[in-house]
Amino acid sequence: MLKQLNQQDLFRLLEQLAISFQLLVPQTLVDGTRGLLPWNGSQTSMSGEPLQRKPTALFFPQTDHLVHLGSDGMAATPAGSDKPLALCGLNREDLAGIAFIDRFFAAQPADDIYLKKRTAALIIGLTGYVGREQQFQPLAEGQCDFELIADQQHWLAVAYTESGKHWLADYPDGPEDVLQLLRETSRGIASQHEQAVKRASRLLQAEQVPDSFWEEISARCIRCGGCNFACPTCTCFCVQDRKTINGIERSRIWDSCQLDAFMREASGHNPMGTELLRTRRRIHHKLVDDPQRWGETGCILCGRCDRACPTGIGMFAICDEIVSRFDR
C-alpha cells in the first residue's frame, strides 16, 4: 500500500494515533540533540541528526521492573501503560536494531515482559530527505508497520503490516514512480561503514587479527560501558532485587560485558579478567558469532558506540583499524 500525505495529513495521522497509542515523536531536546518524546500535539523534529538514544530502550529500558514480591507472599507484575507505544521517526538502522532484538527476546523461552510492550506497539519508519539539513536517508523498505518517506514536497507512506494499512487507509494513494525513484536513490548510497564492518567481520572470522591488536585497542578502554549501553543490539542484563516498604522489587538492568564483574565467578576468578579479553570478546560476538547464528553482524551500523566512546574505539573505528592493518 502506497499513500501520499501532506503536512496537514501527517498531523491528522499523528492526532489519530495519539488517541489509541502513547505516541512518541522525534523532538529537539534542550542540548540540541533529538529524542523520542510524547507528542504534545504540535512539536516534532522530523528531520535532523539520528536520534540520540537507541529506540530499543523503549522496549528494553535501562531499568525494567519485572515483579514485586510482597511480604504477604503475593507476586505482582507492573501494571504497564494504559496505551501501547507508537514510535514515530525511526531510521533504517533503528528499525534494524528493533528487529534484531525482537528475534532475541521472541526466541523460546520468549521474554513476556518485552513482548507485552513490543507486540502491541506500532512502529513507524522515517526515511528519505529527513537527515541533517534534509540529507537523504536510506529507505527501510520493511521492519516497521509503515514507513514515512520524505520526498522534496510530500510524505509518501508505505504500509508493511495490516496495522500499518489500517492507519493509512484514509489517505490518498501515492505515486509509484516517485517511490521507485526514491528506492533507486536509496540503493545507490554506498555505506563506507558497512563495507568496513563486513570486511572486518570476515577478517575476524578468518582469525586474521592477532591479540596484539586487541591489547592496543583495550589499552584505550576506560571501562565506561558506553559501547554496550548505547548499542541497540546489546541485550545483556543483570537482575537487581531491592527492598520496598512491603516486599522486594525485582528489576532487570542493563549490563555491560566490558565490566569485570560480568563474567566473574563467585570464587573471584574471572575467565574474562582483562580488558583485552573483554574487548575482543565483545567485538567477536557482534562480528563473528552473530553472523554464524543469524547470518548478519550484530552491528546495525547506527554509529552510536562510536559517538558514546570517549576514547575513539567504537565499532566503526575498530573496524577501520582492522581493515587498514590486516586486509591484504
Binding site: D31, G35, R53, A57, Q62, T63, G225, R242, R307
Partner: peptide, 30 residues
C-alpha cells in the same frame, strides 16, 4: 528509568563514564 548523555554538551559530548551512566541507580534505593 535511565540516563542518556547530552549529545551536544561541551564536556560530555554524548559520552559518560560508568558512574554517569548509572547516576540514576541509587535514587530510589530503599
Amino acid at each position: 528509568t535511565g540516563i542518556e548523555p547530552a549529545g551536544k554538551h561541551s564536556a560530555s559530548r554524548g559520552q559518560l563514564c560508568l558512574k554517569g551512566w548509572n547516576a540514576h541507580a541509587f535514587v530510589h534505593h530503599s
